[in-house]
Amino acid sequence: MAHAPETSSALHGVMAEFDSGQALVDAARQTMAQGFTRVEAYSPVPIEELNDIIHKKRTVLPKLVLGGGLTGMATGFVLQYWASVIEYPMNVGGRPQASWTTFIVPSYELTILFSALTAAIGMALLSGLPQPYHPVFNVERFSMASSDKFFLVIESTDPKFDQRAATEFLKGTGAKGVYDVAE
């Protein structure tokens, strides 16, 4: 007990376990109302409300995908124009070299290809994935987070964070268990 500052410096945060999505959402609301800011919730299924409650910000992913798609379209068109008009012109039935209508299909496909890759890779990278190690995995019960348990973590970087107070607070939100998360 006398070493409280030492243990808390090696602490990622305090984790509470819940039985249902509803309990997690209620606890998340209480935690945010309490003024905590560095909070994260973990659930086995997507729960739309959690992001609105905790992070409040929507992802920039759609804008990135738009950029990816436009890049794909431009790539497709420029590639075809350059290959068919500048680098390797070939007369096909006397049609114009820059017959852009015939360039539509590959440009369209590359638009989709680039957008889809941006969506998938962007989703992973924005989430910091791949990330083999994360402190939450140190809690043994956390292996249930992908099965049927719901978790809420108040992180130690939170300015209001105090290990004992956070633990007591989380117990008061109806948690089935509260655990320290080692860094």
Binding site: E40, S43, P46, L50, L61, A116, A119, G122, S127, S146
Partner: peptide
């Protein structure tokens, strides 16, 4: 799994990405 944790941020981006991928497919 790329170290998937199922955090609120993960799921939010995931759901957006899935919807976009469906819209593109």
């Amino acid at each position: 799994s790329l170290g998937w944790r199922g955090s609120a941020r993960h799921w939010h981006r995931y759901e957006v990405a899935t919807l976009i991928l469906a819209g593109l497919s």
